[in-house]
């Protein structure tokens, strides 16, 4: 396994993530033997249920000790373990370019997360696909299960340009329609839209049976406000300008941020969504390992 020379997947990160595992909470569809539960019955060692023998079933599946006790022909069924398909939805809107207190911009941090995740998933035999979005879905790579096939996605991360405003809700709706079956979906975004819109997008994916993980990428500056006093605050996406005394609105602002984050977080919890805050001043591997079941 040779993964070197990518901006967003550095060898030291890959080394740290080598033994990490990513699991899902929901049964997934999969065509290949893997490590995740499937909704189908298969040949794993984990008992699932009994069912009555139907003519045509192989007789070697009949549980003879049960027949001896109950004079009934029953067949013992086992869960099937499959490999999963993971779709990484990466937000490339202009707001992701923000950087104030973090070590890098939110965009760069998100790309590192995407690269690391792809590496982790591929390493455990799952297939992974990269989808970028802003106001709509932009790029979509076919799921790939080998390190060799990660190359175009990793290279694409390095070429991303943020030019558009974001429309997370419609992007998530589109993704839900595009991704068939039960798959893992990882949303990497700053989610800077109204919580109701975010909720609707998440709900669509959830009800479609997707196992959802959200990395909420935020710069510390967004969580505490720069200490600049009277400024003209200009939106990076809309260029809208507002004159604000940051010292005066700080409390109100932080309360709004806290309220917004609580809403997002509680909704994710309700929908059994893995929700992780990815502050750009944190180490990337720490954020990824928080999602891992084996650290």
């Amino acid at each position: 396994m040779s993964i070197t020379g990518y901006k967003f997947l550095r060898p030291e990160l890959a080394e740290r993530l080598r033994s990490a595992e990513v699991t899902v909470r929901r049964s997934m569809d999969g065509s290949h033997q893997g490590m995740h539960h499937s909704s189908a019955f298969g040949s794993s060692v984990e008992f699932a249920e009994y069912r009555e023998y139907q003519p045509g079933d192989p007789i070697n599946l009949i549980d003879w000790p049960v027949y001896a006790r109950s004079d009934k022909y029953v067949i013992r069924q086992y869960h099937e373990d499959v490999s999963i398909r993971c779709f990484i939805l990466l937000d490339i809107s202009q707001s992701m370019q923000y950087q104030h207190k973090g070590s890098m911009s939110k965009m760069d941090f998100a790309c590192h997360l995407a690269g690391g995740l792809m590496y982790m998933l591929t390493g455990q035999g799952d297939t992974v696909s990269l989808m970028t979005f802003d106001s709509k879905l932009r790029d979509h790579f076919e799921p790939s299960g080998s390190f060799a096939h990660l190359r175009p996605m990793l290279e694409h991360l390095e070429k991303i340009e943020s030019k558009q405003q974001s429309d997370i809700e419609s992007s998530l709706h589109l993704a839900a329609e595009l991704i068939k079956g039960k798959a893992m979906v990882v949303v990497i975004s700053d989610l800077l839209e109204e919580p109701d819109l975010i909720r609707r997008g998440i709900d669509h994916l959830y009800h479609d049976g997707k196992d959802l993980t959200v990395f909420h990428v935020l710069d510390p500056g967004e969580l505490s406000l720069p200490d600049h006093g009277m400024v003209d605050v200009v939106s990076m996406e809309t260029n809208e300008k507002i004159m604000v005394d940051l010292r005066q609105v700080r409390n109100d602002y932080l309360q709004q941020v806290r309220h917004y984050m609580n809403e997002i977080r509680s909704h994710c919890t309700d929908r059994r969504v893995y929700y992780h805050i990815a502050r750009t001043d944190l180490e990337i591997h720490d954020v990824l390992l928080a999602r891992s079941s084996k650290k």
Partner: peptide, 13 residues
């Protein structure tokens, strides 16, 4: 007066 580029004005609004 200083100009501050910010990711969103949502919270200010």
């Amino acid at each position: 007066r200083k100009k501050l580029m910010f990711s969103t004005l949502m919270f200010f609004h």
